[in-house]
Amino acid sequence: MNAYVLELLSLIAIYTALTASLNLLAGYAGLVSVCHAAFFAVGAYTSAILSTRYGWSVGGGALVALIAAGALGFSVARLAGRLRDEYFLLVTFALQVVTSGVLLNWIELSRGAMGISNVPRLLSSAGNSAIALVATSGLMVFAARYLERLPFGHALLAIRDDQRFAASLGKNVPRVKALAASVSAGMAALAGSLYAHWMQFVSPESFKVDKSILILSMVILGGKNTAIGSLGGAATLLIIPEVARLVVGGPVAANLQGIFYGLVLVITLSLRPSVLWRARL
């Protein structure tokens, strides 16, 4: 398979996993966040640093990344989970920018804007790496989907639909939300780890706030609580700008991508304002 198509497919797989993980937080727990690229970055950088500086294996790095991002997600949700929707969004926005700032400025840790190169490949060949990546991402998407069938998933849906009612049923609302945030952040970190080993290079440029907005746009476009929606949202928002890039070319293409993501947010929300929330309009 052509290297370009392989890279595009791998990116779609990674972003589908990211979309499914944000869906868990926004679609199930009702916590709309714009810091998913920060959790993605925690995973990518943890894996990159552990494998390039300390010679850790891919699995070991991914496990540490998952635990670190899970703990971060849990803390954020515990601290900010009781805020009203829009304030939670603002906290996550600030957290995203702080993370980008740390990655860019803490040069001793992250090598700043130069990024970390020579991250070991997932498996020896590009083809096998792509297969492993797609398989892992697929597993993550279906794990997220399977959660809905567990009591934990039912609790999340109950909380999203009516927090007070869920609390009256004895559900520990802040704890369940924090656990959802932890699982969601852990999944995003795992996707980040895969990304670092696939691209073999990480830099702050890949984890800025526009990436968080892109992931949120994918969730909004794909609709809440569906695995197919996650795949559809990710594929649409990655393939159409790529086609535009091939047609237009040059530096303008990146700006056209940004305009496209913005339009998707505005138009989808205008047409389906209840896309992330229960039908209460």
Binding site: V32, L89, G258, G262, L265, L269, S270
Partner: peptide, 17 residues
Amino acid sequence: RAPPLVPMLASIGVVAI
């Protein structure tokens, strides 16, 4: 009568555009 989060998210889209 969309909840405040909806136009807020749309405003992020407008900023990107």
